[in-house]
Amino acid sequence: MDLENYTNVNIFKKVYEKREVSSIHNVVEQPHHLLKDNTQHAKGGFNPYVNNQGTTVAIAGKDFVLVAADTRISQGFNILSRDYSRTTKLTDQCVITSGGMVADIETLHKLLIAKVKTYQRQFKKTPTVESLAQLLGNTLYGRRFMPYYAFNLLCGIDQNGQGSVYGYDAIGSWDKLTYGVQGSGSELGAPILDNQFVGHNYLVKTLPDDVSVVEDTGKDIINSIAERDIYTGDQVEIVIVDKNGIRVKREPIRRD
């Protein structure tokens, strides 16, 4: 055995020194015009991650929560689908909506549905939104070193009947929000939401109480993003969760 490495402290040293420059480019997708070949990367590694883009917005109200999302899936400059629903019902009081890679989103949503069913059978009750928030955080962190390429918003009615939105990053860091936006249009959507709703920096977080106003604003935000972001468009899908359950509506928006 190599005496230098006797303590095992530096067992990764050789691997570390041999490593090529940065690793971030292996994981995060490059801008489209720089992307050569997704399956066989220039440096020789395989990159399993693709960003299928799309935008989703969630806004919590006094006794409801509203999700507005587009339905476009892209890969590079190609549109793969114009009517993909990125929002999934988990319980009668809770939905999850995600941006990122469709394959991972689909898998994650299916996994959560299974976890909810297991919970219901084991504990003879439906999980609360607070429980699901923790569960989703743990599920994402469980894949810390090969994350789901999914950026999620968990939306539902909490135990006090209030709307709540939980925002996540890909590895399970999460926070309770009053509104959130994820996906390719998040940079465009965030300032509009900050302007229209009461958020992070307010001590008293007064939630909107009129569903129809919030619905119109949600639609407008997705529509405005679709004007500038080429990856957002085709349809707005509106999902409203309140004490009566979940309603889904769709409206066409620009398709170019």
Binding site: Y119, Q122, F123, T128, S131, A133, Q134, L135, N138
Partner: peptide, 12 residues
């Protein structure tokens, strides 16, 4: 508590 951020029911 870790998994579900809630107290376990007595029955469970």
């Amino acid at each position: 508590r870790f998994n579900y951020a809630e107290a376990m029911s007595i029955e469970q």
